[in-house]
Nucleic acid binder design. Structure first.
Length: 346
DNA sequence: CCAAATGATTATAC
DNA sequence: GTATAATCATTTGG
């Protein structure tokens, strides 16, 4: 039972002294007059190293100083260097350059596009204006909301930048602290500049992960802001009576095939002073809502059919009886109302 | 104030 | 790319 410590001790003592890889000058140094005294020294030093964590800071500081000044220190240091040299290779293999994170790039691009991370003014408002113009058919009336949006965006940008700066500062502080610590430690323990570099890059990676979270949440905030202010649903205006009439007229006179071609849509858009996309929306909504409840639209359908019939009759002046009020309609998936005017499209 | 109407967006399919 | 169906957000009319 009590053989273990003794064996350990003897192994350490003899092993160290007789180590084949021990530097030359150390062997020379130890191989002086009294070998026993030297062995005792090494044992003491090792003992001190092993128990250094048990001591208070002041004590440890004192001991460290003592160790630093010890005449054996350079020799031991060299041993440590050698051990390090052997073990550090395995670490170096695992250390690789990582490619730029696509997620981070996406976030960066978005922040830049939204004008959060870009130049102070111009980019953001221009993008917002473009988006607003694209989604809003009415135009010019949204300057108040627009400025509100810009103000909120500026707020987000300010928060983002102050946070970013805070993180950067903390990162720098921490980095210099660690570097100082490592430099300080490099006096007693072999630390190559490369290792310090590696440590710094690890720290930077950790901090950039935190930065990514910041960017993520900022992106989310911008998205919410966008949906809040730039969503066209939020500032919907009904079309004027005239436009609705034109659209309905077309719809009910092409009831068997209510799919206006691109040219027809453009013409309708021009006549109604709305965009082609709005015409498409209108027809999409109309088709589905008509199909869903034909009964509800019956009256409307008859009215428009009758009106177009009258218009056609008026247009072709007198003597033309091309349009009968009871034209049958059998084509297409849309059942017809009582009245059906002419339909010729495509 | 409520429900219907309505324009816009989204998800899904072809 | 478009069409459809469901849904959202707002306006409108009682």
């Amino acid at each position: 039972m009590d053989e273990q410590p003794r064996l350990m001790h003897s192994h350490t003592g003899v092993g160290m002294a007789g180590h084949p890889g021990l530097p030359q000058h150390m062997q020379e140094g130890t191989g002086g007059t009294d070998g026993d005294g030297r062995k005792q020294d090494i044992g003491d030093i090792l003992q001190q190293i092993m128990t250094i964590t048990d001591q208070s800071l002041d004590e440890a500081q004192a001991r460290k100083h003592a160790l630093n000044c010890h005449r054996m220190k350079p020799a031991l240091f060299n041993v440590l260097c050698e051990i390090k040299e052997k073990t550090v290779l395995s670490i170096r293999g695992a250390q690789e350059e990582e490619p730029p994170d696509p997620q981070l790039m996406r976030l960066d691009n978005m922040l830049l596009a939204e004008g959060v991370s870009g130049p102070e003014k111009g980019g953001g408002s221009a993008a917002a204006a473009a988006a607003a113009a694209a989604s809003g058919g009415a135009g010019a009336d949204n300057s108040a909301e627009h400025s509100d949006y810009r103000a909120k965006l500026t707020q987000i940008r300010q928060i983002y930048h102050t946070e970013l700066e805070k993180y950067e500062q903390a990162c720098n502080e921490f980095t210099t602290h660690v570097m100082n610590l490592l430099r300080e430690q490099s006096r007693t323990r072999p630390i190559s500049p490369k290792e310090i570099e590696r440590m710094v890059s690890i720290i930077h990676r950790k901090f950039s992960a935190i930065q990514m979270q910041l960017k993520q949440s900022t992106c989310e905030a911008v998205m919410i802001l966008r949906s809040r202010f730039l969503d066209a649903r939020r500032k919907r205006r009904n079309f004027n009576k005239q436009a609705t009439e034109i659209l309905n007229e077309y719809f009910y006179s092409h009831l068997s095939n209510p799919y206006p071609s691109e040219e027809a849509k453009e013409e309708l858009a021009k006549k109604c002073a709305i965009t082609v996309a709005q015409v498409s929306n209108w027809f999409g909504n109309k088709r589905i809502r008509y199909k869903k409840n034909i009964g509800k639209f019956q009256e409307e359908a008859n009215m428009y059919a009758a009106r177009t019939a009258v218009n056609a009759a008026n247009a072709s002046s007198h003597g033309s009886q091309a349009n009968s009020p009871s034209t049958p309609n059998s084509a297409g998936g849309y059942p017809s109302p009582c009245y059906q005017s002419d339909r010729r499209i495509q």
